[in-house]
Nucleic acid binder design. Structure first.
Length: 292
DNA sequence: CTATGGACCTGAATGC
DNA sequence: TGCATTCAGGTCCATA
């Protein structure tokens, strides 16, 4: 589930709440994709300064060191606000809703693989498939972290994502544009869904080789990537508002995909049936009429 | 260096 | 109903 918008929404849901917290203990479930890289007990007493995002990684800055979190395919984070329990809060910031009665913090479940207990609440990673990861590094430029972060492309919503360098980078790649977007070494953040959606918005065929894309169409794609991701964040933010007092386990925002998952259904623009194909083991959806 | 395919896991949906 | 197969929002790594 987590592409850039979901990761960013997750970050916003707990970053301000956990900032300033002191780690009391760490509990682990089954192994995630990589080992933590530090003895869990060695984290106790450290201060959480804040939480940033880079691509689909969350970077939790500590007073000493940094924790990288990745949600993989099926990961989710929940933040349990009170020491003894309470509903998980993933809603955007204050004002806090009135406190319901306090149930006990539930024990780690079958799919809970990481828990950070702090004096400001408890952060839990639930990840059935365990493609996610939590990795400690002394600094983000030092090894376990640097290795994971160094190849990442531009941040789509930052100013350094400019059309010029985007076009220049695409011009170097012969792979199909969809794959180039997915790889994330040019621009990060668009996963399988948003890559399809952005290409639809830009009117570009996913199979088109990246280096054949003209400057003008690169411009359109640049805009499309930004808009698709930014809109998803906005929408997620608004639907997560009631997410907190419903239930932390319940769905993300409902996605308004124009092509993803719509094989055989009419294109919302021209009515032509949406097609599905396979690119590098992933499903791609596109409109053969609107995307050339 | 780029491009491709396999690997890692579990659970839900589909097919016979 | 039961069991096998396919698919799922990611990305690292080995191989050409």
């Amino acid at each position: 589930m987590p592409e850039l918008p979901e990761v960013e929404i997750t970050r916003r849901g707990f970053a301000d709440r956990i900032a300033g917290a002191h780690i009391q203990s760490v509990r682990l479930g089954q192994p995630l994709r990589w080992p933590l890289g530090i003895a869990p007990a060695a984290l106790t007493g450290r201060l959480v300064r804040g939480v940033r995002r880079r691509g689909k990684y969350l970077l939790m800055d500590l007073d000493h060191g940094v924790l990288l979190l990745h949600l993989g395919m099926s990961g989710r984070l929940h933040f349990w606000r009170d020491l003894e329990g309470d509903v998980p809060l993933m809603a955007p910031l204050p004002p806090l809703p009135p406190l319901p009665p306090l149930p006990l913090l539930p024990p780690l479940g079958r799919h809970d693989h990481f828990e950070l207990r702090t004096d400001r609440g408890h952060l839990r990673l639930t990840d059935p498939r365990r493609f996610g990861a939590v990795v400690y590094a002394e600094r983000e430029t030092a090894d376990p972290a640097a290795k994971l972060l160094h190849g990442l492309g531009m941040e789509p919503l930052s100013d350094n994502f400019d059309v010029q360098s985007f076009y220049a980078a695409l011009h170097q790649r012969r792979a199909p544009i969809k794959q180039v977007l997915l790889t994330g070494d040019v621009v990060v953040g668009a996963g399988n869904i948003y890559a399809c959606e952005a290409l639809f918005a830009a009117g570009i065929r996913p199979t088109l080789r990246a280096h054949r894309i003209s400057r003008a169409r690169a411009q359109r794609l640049h805009t499309a990537v930004r808009e698709v991701l930014a809109r998803a964040i906005e929408r997620g933010g608004s639907s997560l508002r009631d997410f907190a007092h419903v239930d932390g386990q319940l769905g993300y925002f409902q996605l308004e995909a124009k092509v993803y998952g719509r094989a055989g259904q009419p294109c919302l623009i021209c009515g032509t049936p949406i097609r599905q194909l396979r690119q590098g083991q992933r499903s791609t959806f596109y409109c053969p009429q609107c995307q050339k």
